[in-house]
């Protein structure tokens, strides 16, 4: 096709060698990052000999899983969920109950807990489809409250305020995680896999459809994208990862109790994405790590931590809507921008 004759943009087509090479380089980096991350989490698990900090690191990895899942729901498809703690609780409690009352292996209990979270997500997501923006936030808020109240009040099932203790079982067929470094390694690998899966979703047609629905639902549906399927899928993915995080947490700390699963956990998971940046799964990763370590760093001024956290959230939303990730990208793109400006300057 002689498209060039028709080309509307004024400038003639420049040789495209440079961009292609850069794309190839970025592709290479984007593949090397996965083995590198696996090495990193294993090195952290073996290298941090302070148990306290290793536990914080494991907590961060668990939050990475929950946050990267909500990235699909909120970052990709634009649905605000204030009920992730509910899914986290379902994952944790299901795992705990199956291990302690039915003597399941931890791995099997975890899989079932994740499946149940996903099913509940499906059950909540399908009716919520009809709800736009604000309404979904309310529905998920209500869902989180219902779960939190059930945890406290349905003592026969959930153990009430005491929760479920002693969730200790081999992962599968006698293979056991005994020490904190064991758990750190296991959860670290799961976290890396979670980020990988979410990145795959983002870079597939599904991810594009989710973003399309977020940016313009009318245009997306006119281009043949079913809003309901895409939104429910994104919501269920968020629920599944929250459930996975909850189940891993239950196994790691060996108990679950209702205090953990309140609205502030849901807000924290959402805040991780906002602070880290909703435009990329790496934003969710950064946000999860930053907000897990922040209270530790601010320990000397502990009583101000939540105030600082609230103000930080307020400032990021108003003045840095792209979050930390976007700041990184801006800094990273400065040299390239400078070069481009210099080159166009030369030509004119």
């Amino acid at each position: 096709m002689n498209a060039s004759k028709l080309a509307m943009p004024q400038s003639p087509t420049l040789p495209t060698a440079a961009p292609v090479r850069r794309t190839r380089a970025t592709t290479l980096v984007s593949w090397l990052i996965w083995p590198a991350l696996l090495v990193l989490v294993i090195a952290l698990a073996q290298g941090i000999d302070n148990n306290y900090w290793l536990q914080i690191a494991v907590n961060a990895e668990i939050m990475v899983i929950a946050a990267v899942g909500l990235y699909v729901t909120f970052g990709l498809s634009g649905q605000v969920s204030l009920g992730q703690a509910g899914f986290y609780a379902i994952g944790g409690y299901t795992t705990g109950l199956l291990v302690t009352t039915l003597g399941f292996d931890f791995g099997l209990a975890l899989v079932l807990g994740v499946i149940l979270s996903g099913l509940v997500g499906l059950g909540l997501g399908i009716p919520s489809l009809r709800l736009r923006g604000n309404y979904l936030a309310l529905a998920t808020l209500g869902f989180g409250q219902v779960v939190a109240l059930i945890l406290v009040n349905w003592t026969w099932l959930t153990g009430g305020a005491n929760g479920i203790r002693n969730i200790v079982a081999p992962i599968v067929a006698g293979f056991e995680l005994k020490t904190v470094p064991d758990w750190a390694m296991f959860i670290g690998v799961v976290a890396v896999l979670s980020v990988f899966v979410v990145t795959r979703i983002k870079n597939s047609s599904y991810g594009r459809a989710m973003q399309a629905v977020r940016d313009s639902d009318v245009a997306a549906s006119s281009m043949g994208v079913s809003l309901s399927q895409v939104k429910v899928l994104a919501f269920v993915v968020g629920a599944i990862f929250a459930g996975l995080a909850g189940a891993l947490n239950a196994g790691f700390v060996t108990y679950v109790s209702p205090g953990t699963y309140d609205l502030s956990l849901s807000v924290t998971i959402l805040a991780m994405i906002v602070v880290g940046g909703a435009a990329s799964p790496w934003g969710a990763v950064i946000g999860a790590i930053v907000l897990t370590f922040l209270p530790e760093v601010l320990r000397p001024v502990q009583e101000y931590y939540l105030l600082i956290y609230g103000i930080l959230l307020l400032l990021v939303v108003a003045f840095a809507p792209g979050g930390i990730w976007n700041l990184f990208r801006l800094v990273g793109s400065l040299p390239a921008r400078f070069r481009t400006r210099a080159r166009t300057g030369d030509q004119s």
Binding site: R208, Q211, D215, S216, A219, A220, M223, G224, V225, S226
Partner: peptide
Amino acid sequence: FQTLRLFDEMTVLENVMVAMHH
């Protein structure tokens, strides 16, 4: 659309590929 409705946050290439989703 008369009032443009592109998927603003996505790249141009991705915009076009959305229509191939089905």
